[in-house]
């Protein structure tokens, strides 16, 4: 089980095949207790043999760009469509993780996505458990894929 590799593969798969945006990454940040400062997050839980929370964090304008590329439109505000689209991106990403984990005989169930936005907030993870954060670059800017997990 290589969570960082699975996250990179799943994210590239979703962006290449569903959103049609080029993403690149230099790999995960040091696995640790990063606190991420964010303006928009979409997150979804995984439970079962492995319990996890998978999130995408980015600035509001990146969320609008990603949602716009996915829905072939342009957004000038983070409206319900943007939130739904980003929730769906989190959902697809979690689906990619679920199938990769299943290949390792780790069976998980997806919860449903939630979005959070604000003028500035930080997200932190429990001390027990593991965390992998992978920054991805788009031409427009950067977003982070964050997975906190612990084995059952």
């Amino acid at each position: 089980m290589d969570i960082a590799k699975y996250l990179i593969e799943s994210t590239e798969e979703v962006f290449n095949t569903m959103i049609f945006m080029e993403v690149s990454t230099e790999g995960c940040m040091s696995e640790g207790k990063e606190s991420i400062f964010s303006h928009f997050s979409a997150m979804i839980g995984l439970s079962g043999d492995l319990m996890a929370m998978i999130s995408i964090h980015c600035d509001a304008y990146i969320a609008m760009d990603i949602a716009g590329a996915m829905l072939c439109t342009e957004f000038d505000d983070v409206d319900d469509d943007v939130k739904d689209a980003m929730g769906e991106v989190a959902n697809m990403l979690a689906g990619g993780m679920k199938s990769r984990l299943l290949d390792d005989n780790i069976d998980t169930t997806l919860a449903i996505p939630t979005t959070v936005m604000g003028k500035g907030y930080s997200i932190s993870s429990p001390k027990r458990g593991n965390r992998v954060v992978v920054p991805f670059d788009l031409t427009q800017g950067r977003f982070f894929v964050d997975m906190k997990y612990s084995m059952q």
């Binding site: 997050s41 997150m43 839980g45 995984l46 439970s47 079962g48 319990m51 996890a52 929370m53 999130s55 939130k83 739904d84 929730g87 169930t109 919860a111 449903i112 996505p113 939630t114 979005t115 959070v116 936005m117 604000g118 003028k119 500035g120 907030y121 930080s122 997200i123 932190s124 993870s125 429990p126 458990g129 906190k148 997990y149 612990s150």
Partner: peptide, 22 residues
């Protein structure tokens, strides 16, 4: 029913959106 792991967030101002269909 299964639980995921908890996450904590904090900040000056943020909204947790209601999940569609809930």
């Amino acid at each position: 029913i299964q639980l995921s792991i908890p996450t904590t967030m904090h900040g000056d101002q943020y909204n947790i959106e209601r999940i569609a269909g809930t």
